[in-house]
Design a binder for these strands. Structure first.
Lengths: 142, 142
DNA sequence: CTTACTTCCTCTAGTGACTAGAGGAGCAAG
DNA sequence: CTTGCTCCTCTAGTCACTAGAGGAAGTAAG
């Protein structure tokens, strides 16, 4: 673990976060502003790398930036109760489950649309018909 | 079906598309600009209502505006082959299936995080630990 | 030392699909 | 006539980046 003087390109490669995104994270205060070299280049260290990896992993898991902000400030105070971190994760789990359900219903309807289309003309195309006539839709959630 | 002189509020209620969103759709050319009354109010008719319902249904199904633009122009030419409409729907189905798979993997990892957290202090919280240490993650896709 | 190439810097603007709000005008009921 | 609702236009904000301009600094080869 190289801990002194990584360039933004290095820390980008190691963390998997793109260079402009790192600058963006600094701008919105998700990552502390690192010191600069004589030539005004950002100098990152191991802690920055860990923080970026944390952010990236949380983003991959679909956490929003504000959630991550909270999770990071929790991670910075290790002796506190983790109750809040847990509830953020729980809330997020519920959201993910809701989205899976909605998408599954959607898939069913799309499958039906595609199956029923026998590739004739538009005027008898089930895809167009079903989209146009909401009453024919068996999708329950809307 | 009231076919002449619906206000934007009426057509909004009937289609389920919010008033500012209707104006937005007109602005981006998804909905043709309706005629105006003496008092400069928009006057919608039954065709506008059908078009809005079509758009709303497609948006509910997750189609992007550019897809809808294409689907609408297909629906406007009913004697053409519906091959294109079908392929848009097929492509979209594949995307939805991919998203469901990704979300399912994610749910598994979130469930594991939440289960393993025994509500102690942050320094031993599995939620924080797993987010911080990517190596511990059993999520295959990243 | 010069040249070329890459990486870095800041800044602005664009993305998608809206949403919010300001500031004002029309319309219908009491 | 006043109150309150809906409507109008316009601008700016949302989220999480991404793209591009225009320029400076670092690095490797000749």
């Amino acid at each position: 673990m190289q801990s002194i003087g990584m360039t933004i390109g290095e820390v980008s490669k190691r963390s998997g976060v793109k260079v402009p995104t790192i600058r963006f994270y600094e701008q919105i205060g998700l990552l502390p502003s690192p010191p600069r070299s004589d030539g005004n280049r950002r100098q990152f260290d191991g802690q920055d790398l860990r923080r970026l990896s944390f952010i990236r992993h949380a983003r991959d898991l679909g956490f929003e930036v504000n959630d991550i902000r909270e999770l990071l400030s929790l991670a910075d105070q290790p002796s506190q109760s983790c109750h809040e971190a847990d509830s953020i994760a729980q809330r997020h789990l519920l959201e993910v489950e809701a989205r899976i359900e909605k998408l599954s219903a959607l898939r069913t309807e799309l499958q039906r649309m595609v199956q029923e289309c026998d590739h004739g003309r538009v005027c008898e195309c089930r895809v167009i018909q079903i989209l146009g006539d909401h009453g024919e839709c068996r999708h329950e959630t809307h």
